[in-house]
Amino acid sequence: MSLALAFRDVGKRFGETRVLEAFDLEVPSGEKLAIIGPSGSGKSTVLRIAMALEGIDTGRVELMGETLWEGTRRPPERELRRLRLQAGMVFQHFNLFPHMSVLENIWRAPVDVAGIGREEAETRARELLSRVGLAERAEAMPDQLSGGQKQRVAIARALAMRPPVMLFDEVTSALDPEMVGEVLGVLRDLADQGGITMLLVTHEMQFAAEIADRVVFMDGGRVVEDGPPSQVIGAPVEPRTRAFLASVLRGADVRAD
């Protein structure tokens, strides 16, 4: 089976802080991988590196069979942009474009970046909007939407570029509790539909256990435990994983990341 994403012995630091250390991870195409772990464990950094928003210091990262990062070498801007088309990202704080309508948020990149005709792009955008249950809000401006609605638009926006890999960076963490469900519902549909490789950094353990093929627990910039949800979340082997899950179950302050 081919790999969608591979981290090989990756090291990354911000100033004095080591964010990733000897980090290895292979994600086969089509897999739904959940990454869990405490704040500062480096899990969001993994996604940001895969999206080419951050470089690395040592090691190598491959995206859809091509080298994205190798050591500190930075690919030329053009190359980076081509590689970025292999991945799409949904952010914790949505990052919708506030000056564009909901619909334009979705069709703008396919037209400008992928060179698709405006009409076709708009049709696709409307399809995606109905898939996330927001068909009737096409003409609204982002400011007029609730947090949950914004995040569903952000998912549709990323999907519009049809990337083989989708990265979800704590997409429910900034939402009011009553809006988490609608966003998870959209993610669940996406997972059920299959075909897309999904990486989810999340604090929703129940949800991760439900939809992920595999769960990775990270701490201190390394993979501590890696296995099916039934193991990592259901019956963790590593003491650190157990401690973390226990703190989550106690309702400790993990969502306020």
Partner: peptide, 24 residues
């Protein structure tokens, strides 16, 4: 976040300025 969203969608620097940054 706006710059990052633009990058994640594959906008070129020129497109990012024109479509995302300057209009705001």
């Amino acid at each position: 976040g706006q710059w990052e969203a633009a990058a994640s969608l594959g906008f070129s620097p020129w497109q990012t300025w024109r479509r995302v940054v300057l209009p705001q």
